[in-house]
Design a protein around this nucleic acid. Sequence first.
DNA 1: TCATTGATGGTCT
DNA 2: GACCATCAATGAG
Length: 190
Amino acid sequence: MPASTPALRPLPRSFYARDTQIVARELLGMYLVHIVDGVEQVGRIVETEAYLGEHDRAAHSSRGRTARTEAMFGPPGHAYVYMIYGIHYSMNVVTEREGHASGVLLRAIEPVRNIEGRCSGPGLLCRALGIDRRHYGHDLLSADLYISLPGRPERFTIVRRPRVGVHYAGVWARRLLRFYIKGNPHVSRR
DNA sequence: TCATTGATGGTCT
DNA sequence: GACCATCAATGAG
């Protein structure tokens, strides 16, 4: 194995326990890893969105602490997975301190290993990686689902845009909290 | 290329 | 009963 390809391993919890916008930006280029039945699925994160806690009208946590949003209020470094439109799942990473109710939505990944089909959207990403309600609250410092430094780091430019599908959120809908890798073909449309 | 719409179910009012 | 952090198929231009 080449020396330039270190083994993949979970980022420390301290990575997630920081400002959500910083985490959202730094997640770009990282590898999302899901190991199921001995098969290691790996995708490079190319698009994220930051959700800034209870005051963020676009965040699910702005409706308060409920059974659904419980994970968002929990400690950082865990997955907040929810079903949307009755069909798709979406995966978030919980950030900041416990109780802060912030997180980063993973919107798109670039297939690296053992991934079938496109992952250019939160629903597609979860389907391709087999992520569903079973992963609700899953600790990302675990052996089977985690985020790692990439095997081969690459340079890129980050683009900031308004978040997708949050028109109802007033001034919060205008904020530039969507981040993606400039020019990457796996970023979702719109 | 763009706008519209159906699928489908959990959550909240 | 309404709303939804989506996607794919459809049809008009």
